[in-house]
Design a protein around this nucleic acid. Structure first.
Lengths: 246, 246
DNA sequence: CGTCCTCTTGATTCCCGTCAACTCTTGTGG
DNA sequence: CCACAAGAGTTGACGGGAATCAAGAGGACG
C-alpha cells in the first residue's frame, strides 16, 4: 500500500465515470434487474461508476444522504462506531447489494471498501423520483429491504444468544451462501476482510475469533490453507453448530 | 389468569370479526394511512379484526405465512427460539406496527400477545395483490420496512457492543420514544412485558436485568414506582449511557 | 392463610476480554 | 542479500463481569 498521507486507511474514491449498465457484471443481482432495457437506459443517465480503493471511505456516518450506491464489484462494509471507539460491522456488502435504503436523513454508518471495489452511484433524490415512476423498481426495493430485514433479525439472534464458536460457524455458512447467490461456488470461502472486521461483525474480539478458528480446525470442521481462506470440511456439523442461524 | 389447560401460555385467539377501518384507533399510525377513504373501503373487505388474549399465540415460527397482521391495540412480541430453548425477543409490536413484511415462505418467529391485543388480519395473497394495484400502499410498506431495518441495525449495535446498563438505558428511551410516536406521552413509561421478555430482548438474563434496574435507580436516573412502570428522572444521563443508540 | 409466580438479592462459577508475547509475512532501505 | 520495522494473526496467562445457582421478598388469587 502506498503511504500516500497521514491517514492511510482513509483514502478517497476516484472520480466517477459514466455508467454502462449493459456491461455491468452485477446486473441480474442488483435491484436494476427489475427494469427492462429501455428503462435501464433511462436509469443509466442518472448513474455513474465509482472505484474505491481498499479501506477507502465511500460515505461517512452522520453526513447527509446525498447518494445511494449499488455495489458492482469487490466488497464493502457498513460500520458504526461509538464515541469511545467501540465498533460494529453491521454487514458486508457484495456485488448486487444496495446501499441507501434507510429512511434517515443522514448516513447511519460509514461505508468502507474491504478490498478495491466499484459501485454504481445514484443521486438520492433522482432515484426516489425514478422509483415513483417505476413501480417494478419500487417493488424490487421493497423485496430487498425485506431480505435485509430478515438478515438483520437473524443477526440479532446470533449476537444475543450464540456462543463464539456458533457465531463463527453461522458466519462462515452465511458467507458461503452469499457467494453462491452471486454465482461463486468454490470449495474455498474467501475472507478478504481482516480478523478485526470479523470480530466487530460478530460482537467479539480478534483473539476470540482466532481461538474459534483454531477450535473449528481442531474439530476438523474446517481447514485454513491461509488466514484469508476457509475450506468447509463438515457442513453438517457446522450447520448443527449454527442452529440454522446461517 | 384462568387456568384453562395444561399450556396456559398458549391460548388461542378468538374468532375474527369484520373490520371497521373508520373506527380504527390505529389509522394514522398504520400503513393504511397511505390510502384514502375509498381505497380503505376496498381494503376493509379483505380484512378482519382479531382479539388475542395475553400470551396468546397469533402465529408460529415455521408455519406457512398465510396472513399478515396490523396491530391495532395492546402489545405483541416477535419471538425466535432455538431447539435448546434459548430465546430472543426480536421486537415488541405496538399499535400501527405491521407484521408480515418478510419475504420468507414461513413465519420466522412466533407472534405472541404481551397483553390482550387486537389486530387487523389480512390474507397474505390478497394484500400482495392489493399492494400491486395501489402504489401508495407499496411505498408506505417500503418506508415501514426501511424503518424496521434501521431499528434492527440499531439493535445489532446494542446487542453486540453495549453493556447491560447501557442496553437497559437504550431500551427505556426507545420504549418511551415509541409511546410518544403513538401519542402516549406520559411521565411514566409502561413496561407491560415481564422481565424475562426484556432479558430475552436485550440478550441478557432476568437477574442481570433486575440488577441493572436497581443500579439505574441507585444512580437516580430512574424511579420504579412498581416493576411495570419506570419514571425517567435524568434523561440526559440515560441518553449518555445509551450512546444515541436509543 | 397458603400457593404460585414474579422480581430481587446474594454467592459462586466460568467464559470471554484484556494484556502480553510470539510467529509470520511484507516491505523498505542500507 | 540481509537487517529492521510494521502489521496481522496466533497463543498463553490472568482477571472481571455476566451467567448460574440459590434463597428471600412481595403480590395476586382462591
Amino acid at each position: 500500500m502506498p503511504a500516500s498521507n497521514v491517514a492511510p486507511c482513509r483514502q478517497n474514491p476516484r472520480m466517477p465515470t459514466p455508467a454502462d449498465c449493459s456491461q455491468c457484471s452485477a446486473y441480474g443481482l442488483a435491484v436494476c434487474s427489475a427494469l427492462d432495457i429501455e428503462e435501464l437506459g433511462q436509469l443509466e443517465s442518472h448513474a455513474s461508476k465509482l472505484s474505491v480503493p481498499a479501506n477507502g471511505v465511500l460515505a461517512r456516518a452522520g453526513q447527509p444522504c446525498r447518494h445511494a450506491y449499488s455495489v458492482t464489484s469487490g466488497m464493502m462494509r457498513l460500520v458504526r462506531t461509538l464515541p469511545d471507539a467501540r465498533r460494529q460491522v453491521i454487514d458486508f456488502m457484495l456485488p448486487g447489494d444496495f446501499i441507501g435504503l434507510s429512511e434517515a436523513q443522514t448516513y447511519r454508518h460509514n461505508v468502507e471498501a474491504v478490498v478495491q471495489s466499484t459501485t454504481c452511484v445514484f443521486d438520492m433524490g433522482e432515484i426516489r423520483q425514478f422509483r415513483e415512476r417505476h413501480p417494478k423498481l419500487e417493488h424490487k426495493m421493497l423485496e430487498r429491504a425485506c431480505i435485509d430485514l430478515d438478515n438483520a433479525q437473524d443477526a440479532m439472534m446470533m449476537l444475543a444468544r450464540l456462543s463464539p464458536l456458533e457465531r463463527l460457524a453461522s458466519f462462515l455458512l452465511r458467507m458461503r451462501r452469499r457467494y453462491r447467490e452471486n454465482g461463486i461456488s468454490d470449495a474455498l470461502v474467501a475472507l478478504p476482510m481482516g480478523r478485526s472486521d470479523i470480530a466487530d461483525h460478530l460482537g467479539l474480539t480478534i483473539e476470540t475469533i482466532s481461538r474459534s478458528f483454531t477450535r473449528l480446525r481442531g474439530q476438523a470442521l474446517i481447514a485454513l490453507p491461509d488466514p484469508q481462506h476457509v475450506e468447509i470440511l463438515d457442513e453438517a456439523a457446522l450447520s448443527e453448530l449454527a442452529h440454522a442461524t446461517s
